[in-house]
Amino acid sequence: MQPFEYSGANGPSRVIFGQGSVSKLPDEVKRLGKSAPLLLSTPQQKEQVQALDGVLKNGSITPVGLYSNATMHTPTHITDEALQYAKDCNADCVISFGGGSTIGLGKAISIRTGLQHICIPTTYAGSKQPTRHCICMPLMILGDMTPILGETADGKKTTRSDPKILPTTTIYDVDFTMTLPESMSATSGVNAIAHAVEALYARNTNPVINLLSLDGTKALAESLPIIVNSLQDVEARSRAQYGAWLCGMVLGAVGMSLHHKLCHTLGGSFNLPHAETHTIVLPHAIAYNAPNIPETMRKLAEVLPESDGDAIKGLNVLLTKLKVKRGLKEFGMKEEDVDKAAEIAVSNPYWNPRDIEKEPLRETIRRCWAGEEARADL
């Protein structure tokens, strides 16, 4: 894809898209008037994030430290620890490098302190709409680059939305995506698709959101199968990155429904991996809602390869091509947890185009647990 720059018409968001664009990171830090960034990562990405040290120093910016304990689902006790570390380092901004775990931590720090947040996402799911205090550079993510923050405390995950969570600049550099493994490329990409799909039938959706959602879904659905079979395909990686950005833009613009409620319930309450959970739940949540969203199902089928006019079939085919795990039991969820998950999900439901009924919902969760193919028969 051709490089481009984009400045949001309705907010301070800025996107820099193109191969090698990470070199512009120091200039973006200076543009924000900052000079003492704290780097954030997970323990697994501690060595990778240190590559940014040289990029920043080449632009006369010296990081004041590295906090490398970012954790899935953004536990509040980790946020408290990172806040103290940022204070001790006298950081004037934070740079999060990674997927949802790291970006979530950066957002949590930013909303609590007002520190500028510079994001460098490394999965497709996190390649989302920049939030006001964030500069993002995806490798390929599922890290929620939106005005939405999900946090976990006492075994329950809650979310909140605030324009102050939005990043200022997102830098999309395809070079950072080339080492993303097959499975993470696939699940983080489907995680991004999930945001777009729910936006199609959101209560406050609109024609512009529909255009972004469908184009983002199409770009990812076409590029992800290429990537899992050819990890070094630069054009496919660029298309996926572009699709992830579009999908992220819609997540912050409209409300979400059953799919996200289920994923927050399952992830926060049973400590299930974020992108993998979204991947498993997506076709089942769509199948649950299918009777009430015929126009969405028609539009979705048109952008999913090999759907034959059936969006649920299209999603099932896509997940088969991506060779992803299909059952929550493969990630440690027990069968007896199905009832508990259903109770939590119906206790405080999101708006949804179909009424949330406990028994059909329980069966939906059971199918997710068992790894069955989705079907619209509830």
Results as ranks from 00 to 15, higher is better:
Tyr350His: 13
Ile227His: 01
Arg298Trp: 07
Phe331His: 09
Pro305Phe: 05
His274Cys: 10
Asp337Trp: 09
Lys329Ser: 13
Pro273Gly: 12
Val250Ser: 06
Ala341Tyr: 06
Leu266Met: 11
Leu246Thr: 06
Gly332Arg: 07
Asp355Ile: 05
Thr364Trp: 02
Cys247Met: 12
Tyr242Ile: 10
His284Gly: 02
Asn229Pro: 06
Tyr350Glu: 10
Val234His: 00
Ala285Trp: 05
Ser269Lys: 09
Cys263Glu: 09
Lys325Trp: 00
Ser257Arg: 09
Pro273Tyr: 12
Leu231His: 11
Gly255Val: 06
Gly252Phe: 00
Glu302Gly: 01
Arg354His: 06
Ile226Cys: 09
Asn289Pro: 00
Glu359Val: 12
Ile286Met: 14
Lys299Pro: 00
Asp310Thr: 10
Arg362His: 14
Ile312Val: 14
Lys299Cys: 11
Leu246Arg: 14
Ser238Glu: 15
Leu300Gln: 07
His278Ser: 09
Gly327Gln: 07
Gly267Cys: 11
Val324Asp: 03
Ala253His: 07
Glu276Pro: 09
Ile344Asp: 08
Met249Pro: 00
Met256Phe: 10
Asn271Lys: 13
Ile280His: 03
Glu359Cys: 03
Asp308Gln: 15
Leu328Glu: 02
His264Asn: 07
Gly309Leu: 13
Ala311Pro: 02
Arg354Gln: 12
Pro349Ala: 09
Glu357Asn: 10
Arg354Val: 08
Arg354Ile: 06
Thr364Met: 14
Leu328Asn: 04
Pro291His: 10
Asn352Met: 10
Leu246Ser: 06
Ile356Cys: 12
Gly243Phe: 13
His278Thr: 07
Ile227Ala: 01
Gly243Ser: 13
Val281His: 04
Ala290Gly: 03
Asn289Cys: 14
His259Ala: 11
Glu336Val: 12
His284Arg: 04
Ile344Phe: 05
Asn352Glu: 11
Leu315Trp: 07
Gly268Asn: 06
Glu363Trp: 02
Lys313Ser: 03
Ile286Phe: 12
Glu343Met: 11
Leu319Trp: 01
Ser307Val: 05
Val338Ala: 12
His260Trp: 05
Met249His: 03
Glu295Cys: 03
Gly243Asp: 10
Thr320Ala: 15
Ala342Tyr: 04
Val303Asp: 07
Lys334Thr: 09
Lys299His: 07
Leu251Val: 00
Val317Cys: 01
His259Asn: 14
Leu262Trp: 03
Leu304Trp: 04
Asn271Ala: 13
Val281Glu: 03
Lys261Cys: 01
Ser307Ile: 06
Gly309Asn: 10
Ser238Phe: 05
